[in-house]
Simulated assay, not measured.
Amino acid sequence: MKKQSLIIALLAAAGFMGTSAFAADGTVNITGELTAVTCSVHGGTPGATTGDVDVTLPPIPAAKLDVAGKTAGSTGYKIYVGATGETGCADGTHASVHYEASSPAIDSVTGNLKNNTPVATGGADLVQVQISDASATPTAPINLFTNTNSTPVVVSGNTAELPFTAQYISTGAAKVGTVDTAVQYSVVLN
């Protein structure tokens, strides 16, 4: 009996000590909402069959991106929400875009997109791609790592257009090569 009591006492003490090793330093409070609004998402052109958007930046001489922070090659694109007669995409709904911070190409320091083409296989060096919210006044770069949502646009006629730009941004004296990157997004409706 003494042996059993000793084992129980040791297990209880170990359990108590184990919980102190996991003491919390804070709390992350998470809220959300699921809505009944359903709008289709069309990438690049109204009525496109997917939400994917292809953006081709123009060829730019590397010399134009000779110091960190210089930008060039700004190219616009749009994400379309809803369609004429799509009654589930109700007029008056606010639509915005949330770029997913978990996208692998996002640089958590700059908030821009890293080049996915390695320098060893012909990728440009010391250059990233910056996304800007063209609905904002003035057009504002989006930190893709810490962003909230783009400027909301109101659905009218069961449709909405969300405009953005993509451009090169140097992280130093850019080196010649190709640029290829991508980011995932979700459309937020409320």
Rank of each mutant, 00 (worst) to 15 (best):
N29H: 12
S40H: 10
L6E: 06
G92Q: 05
F145D: 14
I60G: 01
G18K: 05
I106L: 11
I60M: 05
F164T: 05
A136P: 06
I106K: 03
T93Q: 04
S170K: 01
V67D: 04
T121N: 07
T159W: 00
V81Q: 00
L189V: 12
T50H: 04
G26W: 09
N115S: 01
A36H: 11
T75W: 08
G177H: 02
F16C: 07
Y99F: 15
A68Y: 01
G73Q: 00
I79S: 08
P58Y: 03
T165K: 04
A48Y: 09
I60T: 15
K114S: 14
V179I: 11
N115Y: 00
I169C: 02
P163N: 15
A90V: 15
V183C: 01
T35R: 07
V37N: 10
G26C: 11
A174K: 08
T38K: 10
I30L: 12
G69V: 11
T38I: 07
V155R: 00
A68Q: 05
G69K: 02
S156R: 09
V188I: 13
N190K: 02
A136E: 09
G15S: 02
M17H: 11
T27R: 02
Y185E: 12
T139M: 09
G122Y: 09
V53W: 01
A140P: 06
T137E: 03
A13K: 01
T19I: 15
G92E: 14
S135P: 02
A21S: 15
P104L: 12
N29L: 10
A182K: 13
K64A: 14
T19H: 08
S74H: 05
G172W: 00
L10H: 04
D107G: 06
Y168Q: 05
L162Q: 06
V41Q: 08
A136S: 15
T121S: 05
N112V: 07
S40F: 02
K70R: 13
H94C: 06
L34C: 07
V179C: 02
P118Q: 00
T27D: 06
N143S: 09
L6N: 09
V187I: 14
K70L: 14
G177Q: 04
K70N: 13
T45A: 13
A120W: 02
Q4T: 12
V155F: 02
M17C: 03
H42K: 13
A21V: 14
I131V: 13
P59G: 09
T45E: 09
G88V: 06
S5R: 06
G85S: 15
G111P: 07
G111D: 12
A14D: 07
V55L: 06
D91N: 15
N29M: 05
G122R: 04
G26N: 14
V53D: 00
T35V: 05
P141F: 11
A173G: 10
G47Y: 08
P46L: 07
F164E: 00
A95H: 11
S108A: 11
N112W: 01
H42F: 11
G157C: 07
I30C: 12
L57P: 00
T31A: 12
S108Y: 07
C39P: 15
A134K: 05
P118K: 04
